[in-house]
Amino acid sequence: MNININNLHFTYPTGLEALKGVSLTINAGEQVAIVGQNGAGKTTLVRHFNGLLKPTSGSVTIGDWDTTKYSVAKLASRVGYVFQNPDEQLFSRDVLTEVEFGPKNLGYTKEKIDELVKQALVWTELTDKTETNPYDLSPTWRKMVALASIIAMDTPIVIFDEPTTGQDFANVSRIANVIAELKKQGKTVITITHDIDFCAENFERVIALSNGQVLLDGTTREVLGQEEILAQTYVDPPQLTRLGKLLNLKETVINQQEFLKAIK
């Protein structure tokens, strides 16, 4: 299911013009990272995908659905959205109820719900915490509950808003595993992130936004190698890309394997 964004403009009621003509196509099954400085329009853009925001002008379609013609509740069957702050989305008295809530509301059969919930809990390593109240868990585990509750909805498109902020090493790996599993299932994963090393290691395509417009769009290697242009939106290339540049390596390297190969 493709996402088509055509000359999207969005102005907040305060008069702030957050998006100034964005046109993009995100194909089914792509793993896309959206990067850019605070205020570049990243969150404003992705909130158009599930209809939380509607275009001031231009259009956004999810498959054959124009988002202005469908409710957020309806769009939730196609687009799952994991908030940056889990506390903005969790409300149930225990983890299991929380994770079941989404798929139940989408009207799946009991068997399908059980299967989806089980899988989501396994991927997020929450199987031993199903009876716990989410608010008795640490913020990092609450983040995993937020992830699980969206994954369990089995939507073709999943959006993560800053999944790695404040997460430790172990949890960042857990989140990377979830993204890899979603990829295997052919889902579209769109992630907003400031964690550029995480971006380099887990995504195929990167879109850099600046000041409400698309600054760069291409494969991870193409985009993250453009140090000067990225600087306009205050994004530093990944650590090893910067190191490669400093050492005058011929090609842009984005991960450890490539770096070691290049210096041999």
Partner: peptide, 14 residues
């Protein structure tokens, strides 16, 4: 199980 900088891990491997 602590996270380290990419510079540290790449140099350790190198």
């Amino acid at each position: 199980g602590f996270g380290v900088s990419r510079y540290t891990s790449v140099a350790r491997e190198a």
